[in-house]
């Protein structure tokens, strides 16, 4: 019999996420990886401004709440304060990472800062009530694109993994999702690799997770998971966008 236990790296504080929101699944995966790698005691997590702002209450490791979009800069400081003894991760939404914090993201990647970023792409500003995100799809209806995202007026979605993959800096970039058991397994492998890379001093790893927001997408949890397959994955293909160590081996 398989006993489904709560990972040790999660506190007893109940998640505040909406029913069907995949933020919770990703938290769980991060916590499982922290447990499996035995790094809880040296890990410092950085929460964003967004629906996951309270992540500092959910993880048992030391936690820091950063200003909106600034988590990669805060992580840079924490890591450099004691590179030998700190494992540092940020957990950020798409508004946080790809809009207001784009400069911090790109430059942390360019420096190959030895940190791990978990990037939740839910194509929406969840916390503020469903505004258009830099990742909202063309035609997507949001509170601030009530007639659908018009790319003539507000431009095109930002594909973060593709964008960062053009830089020489980053070590590892992968896009995953968590809308099925198979996808969850792959997401966990990716997250584990992103932490292992840091332990091995390989540098910047970012895992983009296509995530659901049934509340602000105006969908049932089931429909939201299906929308990831039908609308998000075609625009944001899953896969590894950069793996420098593997590239080196091939060469």
């Amino acid at each position: 019999m398989v006993v489904f236990e709560k990972p040790k790296a999660l506190t007893d504080v109940p998640f505040h996420y909406c029913p069907g929101c995949t933020h919770g699944i990703v938290h769980r995966l991060v916590a499982e990886v922290i447990d499996e790698l035995g790094i809880e005691g040296k890990t410092i997590g950085i929460a964003p401004v967004g629906c996951s702002v309270m992540a500092y209450d959910y993880f048992t490791c030391d936690m820091i709440e950063a200003a909106h979009g600034r988590a990669p800069a805060v992580a840079t400081g924490v890591k450099r304060a004691d590179p030998e003894n700190h494992i540092v991760f940020t957990y950020q939404g798409d508004g946080d990472l790809a809009s207001i914090g784009m400069a911090e993201t790109v430059h942390a990647a360019a420096r190959n800062e030895n940190i791990t970023i978990i990037f939740i792409n839910n194509a929406i500003y969840g916390m503020t009530g469903g505004q258009m995100a830099p990742t909202s799809l063309p035609g997507q209806v949001t509170q601030t694109s009530p007639y659908g995202r018009n790319t003539d007026l507000c431009g095109w979605p930002i594909k973060v993994c593709e964008l960062l993959s053009e830089l020489d800096g980053p070590e590892y970039l992968e896009r995953v999702t968590v809308n099925s058991v198979a996808h969850v397994r792959q997401a966990k492998r990716a997250i584990k690799k992103a932490f292992q890379n840091q332990i091995d001093n390989k540098g910047f790893s970012l895992i983009e997770v296509l995530s659901s927001c049934p509340t602000n997408w105006g969908m049932t949890p089931e429909k939201a998971l299906k929308w990831i397959d039908d609308a998000m994955i075609p625009y944001y293909p899953l896969g590894v966008y950069k793996d420098r160590s593997a590239q080196k081996k091939e060469a």
Partner: peptide, 14 residues
């Protein structure tokens, strides 16, 4: 902006 947030990180780490 990044510089002061790096300061925030180091200071958090004591």
């Amino acid at each position: 902006i990044a510089a002061i947030n790096m300061v925030y990180g180091v200071s958090s780490a004591g």
